[in-house]
């Protein structure tokens, strides 16, 4: 799977090569705080990608360029050696992190939780959540029709996942979910794994998610910090040099810093953001040959998990 031919480097678009140069020369660039407010105009970098596609429907977080990109990935979701391998390897850490968040308070050992997985893709996390003993139901949504088809097909190979109501896939955006009255509207755990970096306007997107969180519930996600390190690993190495994931999977300028995430959370009245009991962060690093490992403090370097709790007295 690795394509290490050096000539590939020179096949990079000129814009990327110069971006590489400027990033490495001015590392402080990435430290500039980036407010999560909606941008008034799309960035020039995205214009060429969206121009040929119909404009996104009003008030939807769905980025059509991203949707079409993930369509082409559909078949690789469940291939053990395909481009989703790193996501599969990360999956156990997602459960560990959720446990860390929920275990901030004493839990009833017999509780059964309702999960909502946003941007479920081929169902890697949604399936695993549905198999957990403390999970009652999992509702998994994704706007891309092809990945929902892949997820539904793979669901059929495991009888546990076919138990009525256990795991439901919906091809929908989070905004449309609110309009589907037959679907459960509030959840104990909402997950958002490797999604936020694909969203052009994260703030309204996150706010529309909070409505679906039960009081006392956790919004848990993972994403990538916008740093020279993450540009090097996710754009240059993963997409271009090694070819671990297809080119165009990541849009580096949309990456969000953990501090930006927390600043946003502090502005939300519904959220409890005190360290530990209401806010959790965990940096993880992929070590080839070993897998994903938690590395304290690495959240400001690259991949990290975040968890924020809705106040018990919120609506």
């Amino acid at each position: 799977m690795a394509n290490t031919s050096p000539s590939r480097l020179f096949q990079l678009p000129a814009a990327l090569r110069s971006a590489a140069l400027s990033t490495s020369l001015a590392p402080t660039l990435s430290r500039t705080p980036k407010p999560l407010v909606p941008a008034t105009t799309p960035s020039p970098g995205r214009a060429y990608a969206t121009a040929t596609l119909p404009p996104p429907p009003a008030q939807s977080s769905v980025n059509q360029a991203e949707v079409s990109h993930f369509n082409t990935l559909a078949s690789a979701w469940w291939d053990p050696h395909g481009s989703s391998r790193l996501l599969h390897l990360m999956n156990p850490l997602r459960h560990d992190f959720i446990r860390r968040c929920t275990n901030q308070e004493v839990r009833d050992p017999n509780e059964k939780l309702h999960y909502l997985d946003i941007g479920c893709g081929g169902g890697i996390f949604a399936e695993s959540a549905a198999r957990m003993r403390n999970v009652s139901t999992v509702t998994a949504v994704d706007p891309t029709p092809e990945v929902i088809a892949v997820a539904r097909k793979h669901q059929r190979v495991d009888p546990t996942l076919l138990e009525p109501g256990k795991l439901t896939y919906l091809q929908t955006s989070i905004e449309e979910l609110s309009r589907q009255k037959e679907v459960r509207q509030q959840y104990d755990i909402i997950t958002l794994f490797e999604v936020i970096e694909h969203i052009q306007q994260p703030s309204p997107f996150l706010q529309s998610i909070l409505k679906h969180l039960k009081p006392g519930g956790w919004l848990v996600g993972s994403t990538i910090a916008r740093t020279p390190v993450s540009w090097f690993t996710t754009k240059l190495m993963a997409e271009e040099v090694l070819g671990i994931v297809p080119r165009g999977t990541h849009e580096w300028s949309q990456y969000i810093q953990p501090q930006e995430m927390r600043d946003w959370a502090r502005q939300q009245k519904a959220l409890s953001t005190s360290e530990g009991v209401g806010w959790q962060v965990m940096g993880v690093v992929y070590v080839p040959g070993i897998g994903w490992k938690e590395v304290r403090g690495s959240e400001s370097l690259g991949n990290y998990f975040f968890g924020m709790k809705k106040r018990d007295d919120a609506e």
């Binding site: 053990p80 599969h88 390897l89 999956n91 156990p92 459960h95 560990d96 399936e127 695993s128 959540a129 549905a130 198999r131 957990m132 003993r133 495991d158």
Partner: peptide, 11 residues
Amino acid sequence: MEHGMDIGSSW
């Protein structure tokens, strides 16, 4: 089992 895996899968 503690991480929701299909125990027959290569993962």
